[in-house]
Design a protein around this nucleic acid. Sequence first.
DNA 1: CTGAAAGCGCTTACAG
DNA 2: CTGAAAGCGCTTACAG
Lengths: 352, 352
Amino acid sequence: MVSVRRPARPGFTLKQLAELAGVHPSTVSRALDPLKHGLVAADVADRIRRIAEEHGYRRNSVAASLRTQRSTLVGVLVPDIANPVFSPIISGITEVVRGQGFSTIVADTGGEADSGLRLVDELIARRVEGLVLASATRNDPVLNHCLAEGIPVVLVNRADDLDRAPAVVSDDILGMRAAVEHLHGLGHREIGFVGGPERLSTGHLRRIGFEQGLTDFGLAFRPDLAVEARAYDIEAGRSAAVDLMRDHPELTAIVAGNDLLALGTCAAIRGRGLTCPGDVSVVGHNDMPLVDLVEPPLTTIRIGPRQMGHEAARMLLSLIGGEAVHHMRVVLPSTLIVRGSTAPPNKAAQRR
Amino acid sequence: MVSVRRPARPGFTLKQLAELAGVHPSTVSRALDPLKHGLVAADVADRIRRIAEEHGYRRNSVAASLRTQRSTLVGVLVPDIANPVFSPIISGITEVVRGQGFSTIVADTGGEADSGLRLVDELIARRVEGLVLASATRNDPVLNHCLAEGIPVVLVNRADDLDRAPAVVSDDILGMRAAVEHLHGLGHREIGFVGGPERLSTGHLRRIGFEQGLTDFGLAFRPDLAVEARAYDIEAGRSAAVDLMRDHPELTAIVAGNDLLALGTCAAIRGRGLTCPGDVSVVGHNDMPLVDLVEPPLTTIRIGPRQMGHEAARMLLSLIGGEAVHHMRVVLPSTLIVRGSTAPPNKAAQRR
DNA sequence: CTGAAAGCGCTTACAG
DNA sequence: CTGAAAGCGCTTACAG
């Protein structure tokens, strides 16, 4: 069972503990520090720890932080904590930094740069030792600010255009090429793209990947085959897909920039009185929870958000430790997961 | 556009700023404190702020915290940050406390009491001023610990059996009664329950609500009509529903303790070669994202997790401010959302 | 192995 | 309106 500690005695400080133990505060400090209690005679250290326990001593890490100039705190900025892509990233980061005694402060920018800047200032005032930005745009004012402040910073899921900070991302380009390859293999030749915002590296690179995919298989790319949704959500995806299919009724397949855009695309397909995958196949990206249970179950590109968090945290800890980071962009592989939203093209649809 | 501040000068302290301005540090402290700069001559205050800006002064809130004995930090414990029920709760809490200058540290217990205790100790060492527990069981060791430590604490989503701490929850009982009412109205008379763990207030109260629902409509409750899933996830729901339907093939409807259990129940129904809602209707709880898009779209009870977060944060701030809290349990209403997973009973099914 | 001293960077009650 | 002093609770280089 769970051991319940002696209740805290409010205002019981290290100094008082030292008096009780009949030693100097510095000895108490050493005895209580796992890295230093070797410097103290074993019996003394034991006695101090026993008294600390009996009296419910609680170390004040605010005071320790001020003295050591280290907060053992890292900040994480996400554009939307409720977006299921970010929660495993956050967990992954926390898991790794906890191992080094760090805690994580998570802040939600709501996707707004102004709010991001305010939050970063607040985190800096709290002396966080480093920052992970999951919210970065391709040229991010918040990243500019962090760089100007000289605080260790790592990007995750999204990268900077100029690689001014290390980033851990999934292979956006290869993922979308795999999507096109899959559709081409099924026999599709008229393939469109509903992408995320171009100001985000994921929006930009996944579109590039789509284009490369077409080229890989000798299909002509024309700019109007790719539309840009104004946000990564279902409604923006639906709206963009409506436009795309209005201009391109010949399409038998659509690659989407993420799963929510894909779900919006499915809605747009139904809105035209068509079916997915009967008339139009759809591929998403991310493999977020429950997309295996929607109708039709979504074919998508699975990424490893938790691993991205792990890797980003490891890089941040290196940076904090003053080590050089050797890779400015760590690209994790992703996998095509084939489900029910893709099928060979319907001949009738092709004649439409 | 976004204004970029002068870069921080590392190690530039209030004392140095005071020297530059030719005033005493205490005057700088006052000039920079929005609540106190009225105490300083306007021209002096302006000059100080200008110099602070020019030199990239950054207040060290660690030092301020030590001096004032206030961290303006609150902690939030969740059992699983990746569970979409908790993200809006976290957002809601953060939104409210930010307004009072607080930041939020989120910690993920993974549902384990030991881990929760460790995390709470860490948060207390960081001198968080209060804690929101979204992870509480009906008799929670972590809550015991917080109570023993005397730290302000509020529960959210889940309550303590003895109401030893204020809690903000949705109306678990009424929600499940509404589910039964809906099914009864469709004509169902053989209704079962797949509930969450009884050690959680949601698991316990929703089952009670189910039982009351049966009684409301003159249907006999027998204990074996309700099974307990070992966790709030799809697989546990499936497994529990398999057992329930094996023992009760006559059921034409199943109420589930949350949406994931409901999705598991749907899987179990398909596993028996039956259909939902053709053979068995299913009702969930929470209305989590995407359950409107699964097949069949889930009939469920919608709660307001963000509002729960708001309310919990307001209560915590009151507690921190030393005010009395008048309601030990704030119960927010929930709403039945009817979708495709419920339909009138199939006569053939009833004869099975 | 232990102690004495200094100091991390702020804020605030007190005095003038 | 401003200054001087004290102190929040730790840690660590230095001395012995």
